[in-house]
Nucleic acid binder design. Structure first.
Lengths: 347, 347
DNA sequence: GCCACGTTTGAGAGCGCTCCCTGGCGCCCG
DNA sequence: CGGGCGCCAGGGAGCGCTCTCAAACGTGGC
């Protein structure tokens, strides 16, 4: 039952059920075109022997692996320490499970790893790849895109804008930012500052664009470039207050920097939201709910992004072997998920 | 180069290099016992053709997979939203990479998944498993332990205490807790409260034990069971202050609950650390450094735990194929990593 | 009652690789 | 200078599975 007793093979099951290997194979893979009594007999034999198909042998002939690589490029540790990827992984995992696929996690550390990952992906060990790349100058996505592996990107890649065959899933960063800023405007605020994220990330750029969409002709000095960290948020607010002492609202590009902003505002004696209204982005719960006051922010459904990425990669493939392998690429080249404004106390 | 052009096989490389398949195989797998000029020729052919071994074919005969499953049981979403697993995964990933192994991530959602994971693991798709189980009543670890797959647990499992063949890696929760409480005592504090974690987790239990080790004969009413969350920490502090208004220190079982404690103390007009000193556990940076005041806490090297788990699982196996497959199990049944007290402003 | 056709089942090849074993060759020693 | 030994390369089997193809088995219609 346990130990080194080598696992039963198809052959063994066939012998036990008194049929041929081919028949067992058919039953194991869906049982189409096998008469009921035989199906039953085979099923029982499988059960009794505790047969589990040898995936290696199967892959060898089918050239399918029922496995998908998830590549997370991680130039900074910070990125990895937030719940973002965790949630996305969850979504991915759920969807892959539904498709009987495994999740092979590839974390890259520095440039050398690109080679390793590239080799792995083009080595045909997986059916596809889900790639997260946050930085515009990251060579990895390009590499992968050239590796000839079906790929879906998480977040809008910074290059190949109009390229038809790049598939990605992103949230509506720009639209979400617009909603946030419009909300501030609706509150009667006029001197609205924006704390950006690192502008080598498309999400930060898109949020900035959304801000600009609403504040057309606004004072460019009300935009301070920052880095998605609480400390950066603090610095940015100090800068903003210096440039514009009667600032009455802040839109921070993420919750972390918003939390820093909150702290700096309190320290400077500004009441939130009375004097200055604050809105963040992400709705990262441990942060957004715990700030003082709780943060109004833009929520994105991160887990759903993950699910969608997996679904897109697996294409029209139904939960196991049915249907066409892949709808010939008329997939949308970019899918953008909606965001919603979550009102709490800060604005 | 790209596209569907089927990848080159050993055969192709052999033809190109003018040698036999066997020779190419030898070269690819270390090149022992092949004369230099041939090695060179084969290497070049591999390079030119962009040959990558077919892992499925290889596994089929070697019965090795160069892959390790990482199983994360996740009854609560909260658990996953903290950076803990992320860091551990990093450590694991690094070590596996060094051993040319892949990381197959298995996230479980609810009971049904146990079956799936069990089948997968006993299906012989991976060389071993790294399992994280946080709760005492989780049936998963038991299941896996019975599946006949080499396994290393992350964190002390709640059962099979003395069992010789259970291998796990944990931090020194008890010792770390002792250090923290001793530090408070050294500060002259005498009315020290403890906010525990969920006591169905061994880490929480061990930290409580450490607290008790130092506070022998202490008032049991100074121990409040909580849940590792900020909100729980707040509640616990209110409870503690009610029971003991002149409380002068709090040891919280993790940083998150410590942050809640900090807030509740401020709200109740207690100054930290003047009136009440506070120590957390984990040194979860985004939290510990950002609290007001910054949190004194117990650091554990989470990434190293991950590395160690992987190293233990892979046994004495050197970076690829050399050495014995596995030192016959005289491995230590539990490895406990040291913790260090990180002094910041809160105590 | 017989033949043509559709449906099930079985036989066999082969996926790409490793590894055992044999054959060939150079070299050392007698 | 010849025999034996050791080292290196190649041949070939076979890992467990899928999938094509052909055989066997009905079944219905004429």
């Amino acid at each position: 039952m346990s130990e080194t007793a080598s696992r039963p093979t198809l052959e063994a099951v066939a012998a036990r059920a008194g049929v041929s290997r081919a028949t067992v194979s058919r039953v194991v893979n869906g049982g189409e075109g096998v008469r009921e009594p035989l199906v039953e007999r085979v099923r029982r034999a499988v059960e009794e022997l505790g047969y589990v198909p040898n995936q290696a042998a199967r892959s060898l002939v089918t050239r399918r692996h029922d496995a998908v690589a998830v590549v997370i490029a991680e130039p900074e540790t910070r990125v990895f320490a937030d719940p973002f990827f965790a949630l996305q992984l969850r979504g991915i995992s759920k969807e892959l499970t539904a498709h009987d696929s495994q999740l092979v996690l590839l974390l890259t550390e520095g440039r050398d790893d690109h080679v390793r990952v590239g080799r792995y992906l083009s080595g045909g060990h997986v059916d596809g790849a889900l790639v997260f790349s946050l930085h515009l100058d990251d060579p990895l996505p390009g590499l992968i895109h050239g590796a000839g592996v079906p790929t879906v990107f998480g977040g809008r890649p910074g290059w190949g804008e109009g390229t038809r065959d790049i598939v990605y899933v992103d949230s509506d960063n720009r639209g979400g930012a617009r909603d946030a800023v419009r909300h501030l405007v609706g509150l009667g605020r006029t001197r609205i500052g924006h704390i950006t994220g690192p502008l080598d990330q498309t999400s930060a750029v898109d949020r900035l664009e959304g801000f600009r969409d609403v504040m057309v002709g606004g004072d460019p000095r009300l935009i301070v470039e920052s880095d998605f960290t609480p400390a950066g948020g603090e610095r940015a607010v100090r800068e903003l207050l210096e440039r514009c002492p009667d600032l009455d609202a802040v839109f921070a590009a993420n919750d972390l920097s918003a939390s820093g902003a909150l702290r700096a505002l309190r320290e400077r004696g500004r009441r939130v939201p009375d004097d200055v209204a604050v809105i963040g982005f992400d709705d990262m719960l441990p942060v957004a709910e715990q700030t003082d006051p709780p943060l109004t922010t833009v929520r994105q459904d991160i887990e759903e992004m993950g699910r969608l990425m997996a679904r897109l990669l697996l294409g029209g493939r139904e939960p196991r072997g049915t249907g066409p392998e892949r709808e010939a690429g008329n997939a949308p080249s970019g899918v953008v998920l909606p965001t919603t404004l979550v009102r709490r106390a800060s604005a």
